[in-house]
Simulated scan of single mutants.
Amino acid sequence: MGLIGQIVSYREGLGDPARLVGEFRRTSLLVPLTTTDVDSDAERPFVAAGGLMSAVSGGIRWLYAFTDEEALARFVHARGEGGHEWPYLTMLGARLLDAVVPMSDRPTGVAVDVADGDGAMLFPPVAGIVADAFAVDVDPGADGGRGAVA
């Protein structure tokens, strides 16, 4: 079915959360890079200088990821940044969750196709999506450190 199909199915109330996360982990996503200086963050607060493009909302860092170049282009245009290109990496969703999220300075999730309204999906930093050590809904001190829902 693919990630887009899983997102649609989930949004229609027919999807399986485990299948959705599994498909996300298997999908190659376009992850925009930044090329800005630290000084320009005031002008473009959704850009983390020198790294992967992200936004911070409610204490959560949201990494932007896109299913294809068209979805990335819609995001660029929605931000009024259509005058220049953004470089990107192609990365499996699993790599984002297993390697990038643990390197972040705060709880981190992934926002997929954020300019696509009903086609967008957030993968928050919760148990079952990110490792328990980085999940905001796991109390590391409870249950002998094995992880209990807080």
Rank of each mutant, 00 (worst) to 15 (best):
V130N: 01
M53F: 03
V149P: 11
E43Y: 13
F123A: 00
L63Q: 05
F75C: 02
A135S: 04
E81C: 04
S54V: 10
A78M: 09
V130I: 05
G144P: 05
L52Q: 04
P107L: 03
L33R: 15
W62R: 08
G13N: 04
S28Y: 12
D105C: 09
G141I: 08
E23W: 10
L63D: 02
L97G: 02
A48K: 14
G58H: 13
P125Y: 09
S57K: 14
A73L: 04
L33P: 05
G80H: 10
P140C: 01
A73I: 03
R26W: 04
V21R: 10
R61K: 14
A99E: 15
P102E: 09
E85Q: 15
E12A: 12
G145M: 09
P107Y: 05
D98S: 08
T27Q: 08
A131G: 12
D143N: 10
D37S: 10
L52A: 01
V110N: 00
R95Q: 12
F75P: 02
M121C: 01
Y10L: 07
L29I: 06
V130K: 03
L97I: 08
M91K: 08
G22W: 05
D139M: 04
L33G: 03
D37K: 11
P125E: 04
P87L: 10
G141C: 03
T35V: 07
L52N: 02
G141H: 11
T34N: 04
E81T: 12
T34C: 03
L89F: 07
R74H: 09
A120S: 15
L72D: 04
G119C: 00
A18Y: 12
P125M: 05
I60M: 05
G144N: 11
T67K: 15
M53N: 04
R61C: 02
A99V: 15
T90I: 07
M103V: 13
H77L: 07
S28K: 15
V38W: 12
V8L: 03
A78Q: 11
V112R: 01
Y88D: 02
A42N: 14
A131N: 13
A148V: 12
A78Y: 11
V114Q: 05
Q6S: 07
Y88H: 12
A135I: 02
Q6N: 08
I7T: 02
A18E: 13
G147A: 05
T67W: 13
E69W: 09
V8C: 00
S54N: 03
V126C: 04
L92T: 14
G50E: 06
G59L: 06
D105P: 13
R25Y: 07
R74W: 06
R95D: 06
D68F: 10
G51M: 12
P125V: 08
E85S: 10
R11P: 08
V21L: 03
L89D: 11
L30N: 10
A48P: 13
E85F: 11
R26D: 04
S28C: 11
A131W: 09
D16V: 08
G145C: 06
D132S: 02
R106A: 02
M91E: 01
D68N: 15
D113L: 00
G83H: 14
H84K: 14
L97A: 03
E43H: 14
D37E: 15
G144M: 10
V110A: 00
R79E: 06
W62C: 03
S28G: 13
D37W: 07
G147R: 07
A49R: 13
P32G: 01
D39N: 15
Y64I: 01
L14T: 11
L96T: 06
A94R: 14
A133W: 13
D16L: 09
